[in-house]
Design a protein around this nucleic acid. Structure first.
Lengths: 237, 237
DNA sequence: GCCACAACGAGAGCACTGCTCTTGCATTTT
DNA sequence: AAAATGCAAGAGCAGTGCTCTCGTTGTGGC
């Protein structure tokens, strides 16, 4: 993201160079996203450069490596699904409505951008270590689910359950104390479980790994999955 | 698997060629699995050949393409986790014990063979379409969970719940009628949900995508995940 | 036992990849 | 105006999957 620094560093009258740089990086990412849809994570940097009518070496002025390009796409993807989910949630009133809206928004985004979903929620690219910049966007969707439960919890919309036991419960309690005062360790654990289930439901449908058991009413099936995830997380009503 | 056919086709006295072929394919797969641990899904066929001291072109006598090699590894991986889970389940008496044993066995296999787990439960390799031979081994683990619930259901170990509604319910009911007479559509749907959650729990822990929230007691956390999955599937006791 | 045949290993080669380095040009800064 | 910097292009390197050809070797039919 250092081109952002470059832009804000010195805002001269024209600042042509910084502007075309920003446009160029965006254009590269757009074309790369298009290639992502056909070639998946092993897209060719040279092919992207060809599509842009430039030499492959020129791309390296904008992204130091192919991995860095992928990182930019990953961050954008995390933010895209986060945006979609937040937008959908904002239209809802009840916690359950927010929960369902977030889930369906994520699924629909995944169906529209399967390879980008695979990029962020599939197996990591070999030899690729996610940089620091990705962790914040990566947590947005899950935090949205947590926020929904937090809202439900203050209005008594979450079932009372016995607290957790075990060493991991203390770790979760520490997290709850530091970041989510409205939530208990138990609710956090169940939220994570629900998050796993939702992501699994989307991924398995997307990657066709459930052998096309459900063919006609996939949305209905996912809706049921969402509701059982809500039940798992303790969302009543 | 056609080298198996070759072996059983004509068992002459010596049959040297078929034997060394079988040994060679196994050896290639072994080395490839080793490379998988470092390079992931984009392992180099040439590097595998180098490790074996043979020309890269010679490998193509055994696997028509790199994808075919990966397919063989995928099938083996599915069967390995299936074997492990079945072995662990066989030692248990109660449905819940079987459930927990299957889950922990899968997780431990995944921790021991992370890249193979990524190969089968991560995002599919781009441009790679899973062949017919993979679907049967792929279903083994999930069928094991289903069988556990079936055993529980006949002894009244599954909570009574309202039946499903919606179009997808009919699809599931048809599957239940054809393959799982002991199960209801509702139980199948909940089993799938639990399966999603378990696979998600393993994958996210493996790929480090939950930002190392839980550090110390990962097994305990997974055990809790397993139990909430069981609750989700309706397993009482 | 011999011989045609099929399987096999090796090597060269093709088109492609990510990435680096150098060279010349355009733009910005001093 | 001059120096410094940003940028695009091209050549080049090491590596890839895969194909083809060419000797060699084990195998089944006669």
């Amino acid at each position: 993201m250092w081109h952002t620094d470059l832009m804000s560093e010195k805002v001269t009258a024209t600042n042509l160079r910084a502007r075309v740089r920003a446009e160029m990086t965006d254009e590269i990412k757009t074309v790369a996203r298009r290639h992502l849809a056909t070639d998946g994570a092993n897209l060719s940097l040279r092919a992207v450069a060809r599509d842009l009518g430039m030499a492959s070496s020129a791309v390296y002025r904008y992204f130091a490596s192919r991995d860095e390009l992928l990182t930019a796409l990953i961050i954008d993807a995390y933010n895209a699904v986060g945006d979609e989910a937040e937008r959908a949630v904002a239209e809802q009133e009840t916690p359950l409505g927010m929960w369902l809206a977030a889930g369906h928004a994520a699924r629909e985004w995944a169906l529209a951008n399967p390879h980008e979903w695979a990029l962020i929620y599939g197996s990591p690219v070999p030899g690729y270590a996610a940089p620091r910049d990705t962790v914040e966007p990566a947590t947005r969707f899950m935090l949205l689910l947590g926020a929904t439960l937090a809202k439900a919890n203050v209005t008594g919309g979450i079932a009372d359950r016995p607290p957790l036991t075990g060493r991991f419960a203390e770790e979760l309690a520490a997290i709850a104390g530091a970041y989510f005062p409205e939530l208990t360790a138990r609710i956090i654990a169940d939220t994570i479980a629900a998050f796993f289930q939702i992501c699994g439901a989307i991924s398995f449908e997307l990657f066709g790994q459930l052998n096309n058991t459900i063919e006609d009413d996939r949305r209905g099936f996912f809706d049921y999955q969402l509701r059982s995830a809500a039940r798992l997380a303790g969302l009543t009503e």
